[in-house]
Amino acid sequence: MCLGIPGRVEKVEDNRAKVSFGEVSVAVSLDLLAEPVSAGDYVIVHAGFALERLDEEEAQRTLEMLREISELETR
């Protein structure tokens, strides 16, 4: 129920966007977003609404941290 899925914004029209999840794409409301998104952005989608834009930099930082742990552990 509370499972949001990250999807890629393909097209924005007014307050709606076409968002793709791999093969499937759905129409999603942008009414809950404070800032505009554009094609190429990733958003968390839940029950037909985008809840938030995914922060690419933070995502990279998290993965970097995981890789560092891995290097330490496998050394």
Partner: peptide, 18 residues
Amino acid sequence: IQYRRGVREQGNEKARRL
């Protein structure tokens, strides 16, 4: 916050206003 790519400290204020 582990889920930094999705969660901001203050959350989504617009959604909370609604």
